[in-house]
């Protein structure tokens, strides 16, 4: 079930982020296409963008973007910390999900050894990165406000209209950051606890499942965060 849910979640998130880009673009260019972008228009746009990405110009654009990210000026420690975080997370995600989805036995052998080693490095890098970046991504929600009760409940207004919350993209990015940190924390806890002589067989089973689902949460959060933070949509000219 984990494999199916993981694959569906990743694909779903990917499509969701793509639809957000499509929707944002359509909102900025109302004159193009229909007023209400539908599934047909989205699918046409989606496959066109995928095809463009796979062609040389698209690949070059991606490479340039990655280079620009890598060449950002940052203190040495921060730079290497981020490299460590990204590299270990990529390896952990790749090794973990590949074995979880395609290998019935699960992670074993040298890969398991490397997975654990990378996990320790990831935990350290995550902790230090959280300290360094906490200020940048400090949660910033506005105060919750409820309208004063006037005794008059206009007909036709649903309860969903009572509280309207507007979330800026910046806050979403911050939220995703903390979701990733929380998931990483969860991954670290669920990796350490089985190594201690505290949990019996059923507990080990639960911790193992906890680790897998935390990994999925971390991966989804990382994908969304990277899409919004590192590959923002350029505003229409």
């Amino acid at each position: 079930m984990f494999a199916i849910v993981s694959v569906l979640a990743i694909i779903g998130l990917w499509l969701g982020l793509a639809f957000r880009r499509f929707g944002t673009r359509a909102a900025e260019r109302p004159a193009e296409g229909t007023n209400k972008p539908g599934p047909g228009a989205f699918s046409r746009w989606f496959f066109r963008r995928v095809a463009e990405s796979l062609r040389k110009p698209g690949r070059d654009a991606l490479t340039d973007r990655l280079r620009s990210l890598a060449s950002r000026r940052a203190p040495v420690l921060e730079k290497w910390l981020l490299v460590g975080l990204y590299a270990t997370f990529l390896f952990l995600a790749a090794s973990g999900f590949f074995f979880a989805i395609f290998i019935e036995r699960g992670l074993f052998g040298v890969t398991l050894l490397l997975h654990f080693t990378a996990g320790v490095i990831f935990a350290v890098c995550l902790a230090l990165t959280a300290i360094l970046k906490a200020g940048r991504y400090v949660p910033n929600p506005g105060p919750l406000s409820l309208p004063a009760f006037s005794g008059d409940f206009p007909a036709g207004r649903g309860i969903g209209k009572v509280m309207e919350v507007s979330v800026p993209a910046r806050d979403i990015i911050s939220g995703l950051f903390w979701v990733f940190v929380l998931a990483g924390f969860s991954l670290t806890v669920s990796a350490l606890l089985p190594m201690l002589p505290w949990f019996h067989y059923q507990g080990q089973v639960i911790l193992f499942a906890w680790h897998r689902w935390s990994a999925l949460a971390a991966l989804l959060a990382a994908i969304a965060f990277a899409d919004l933070e590192f590959f923002p949509r350029r505003p229409a000219a």
Partner: peptide, 30 residues
């Protein structure tokens, strides 16, 4: 040694998460 390192990382990350949570609650509450 790796268990100790993981435990420290958990402590630091956990502390930050608690602080972040408190900030969220504080902001939501005004």
């Amino acid at each position: 040694l790796s268990k100790i390192v993981l435990a420290l990382a958990i402590l630091i990350t956990g502390a930050l998460l608690v602080v972040a949570f408190l900030v969220v609650i504080g902001r939501l509450a005004g």
